[in-house]
Amino acid sequence: MTSAPDDQRPDLPALRDAISSGDPVRAMPALTQLRFCSDEEAVPLLVLGTAQKPFLVRSLSCSGLGYKRTEQGWQVLSRLLVDDEDSNVRAEAANALASYGVERSWPLLRSAFEADDAWLVRCSILSALAEQPEIDLNWLLDLATLAIKDGDGTVRVSGAEILGRVVRDGADQPLGDQARALLQPLQQDVDHRVVASALNGLQVS
């Protein structure tokens, strides 16, 4: 945990005042100062930030809750992932939830991916989970199968990239063959980026 020398310790009442103002010019620098606070000090103020009107303040607050992890933060992020009106905030909530561990976050993120059709949210979920080295390849195959059916090319690209990883990491397993079979039709995708990702994935030996 990062901490500041005593003479540089943040003034918590001043930070609370700045964050609760809802003014991004005041609130966002205050939120960044919370990295010098303990989790117990920072999380209530980050939660306060998630209740402010400007989406930039809510988004940065969600990001902070991915570093300052407590049960209160988890509960708030879980709600924002589903309920926030702004896709930027939902995407940051997804990233932050993944930092609590793939075993715990998987059910929430899998459900959100299926329910939320915003490309930014879906790409954030794909990226956050694909970065987890310990994730079950079956889970990645499941998620990628959904992603390659998306109407947005960027989401399909991410899905194709994940299939390529499953082909590589699951080469000696049946799911490696399943991933390869899903990549084959993507060579005819209307988006050239998807085609390129599919070809890359199929070239894995």
Rank of each mutant, 00 (worst) to 15 (best):
A112F: 13
R165I: 11
L137N: 11
G22A: 04
D152T: 08
L46V: 15
V195N: 03
L108C: 14
S78A: 14
Q33E: 14
V102I: 12
P5W: 05
A94P: 15
A130S: 12
K149G: 13
D117S: 15
E85L: 06
Q75N: 10
W106K: 05
A94L: 10
K68I: 08
I135W: 00
L175Q: 07
E85F: 04
I148W: 02
L143S: 10
T32E: 14
S63I: 04
L60Y: 10
S197H: 00
W74L: 07
E114G: 15
T32Y: 13
A30S: 10
S99Q: 14
D152M: 01
A42G: 06
I19N: 07
V76R: 11
D191K: 07
Q188D: 11
R35E: 15
I19C: 09
L109I: 14
D172V: 02
G164S: 00
R58H: 08
V82T: 11
S21L: 06
D189G: 06
S105W: 10
G153M: 07
P44N: 10
A196S: 12
P5K: 03
R79E: 12
V190Q: 12
L80Q: 10
L202A: 05
Y100G: 08
P174Y: 05
G153I: 08
G73D: 00
D83C: 11
A128L: 03
R58L: 03
G153P: 09
Q187A: 07
Y67E: 12
L199S: 08
A98K: 08
L120A: 08
P5R: 05
A181F: 05
T50H: 09
A147S: 13
Q33K: 12
L60A: 11
S205T: 13
L45W: 05
Q188K: 06
V157C: 08
P54E: 01
S63P: 05
E134L: 02
A179H: 08
I125H: 02
A181K: 14
S105L: 04
L183Q: 01
D169V: 01
A179R: 00
A96W: 11
A147G: 14
D169N: 11
R79V: 10
S20R: 14
D86Y: 07
L182A: 08
A196N: 04
D116S: 08
P44A: 14
L108T: 06
D172H: 07
A196K: 14
Q75G: 09
S158H: 10
T50Q: 08
R90L: 06
G159K: 02
P185M: 00
D142N: 09
S20P: 00
E161M: 10
K53H: 09
G164M: 01
S87R: 09
L80K: 03
D17H: 12
A18H: 06
L163I: 02
L183E: 02
D11F: 07
G151S: 01
Q75P: 01
Q132G: 04
I148Q: 01
L60F: 10
L97P: 13
A115N: 13
Q132V: 06
L12W: 01
C37Q: 11
N88E: 14
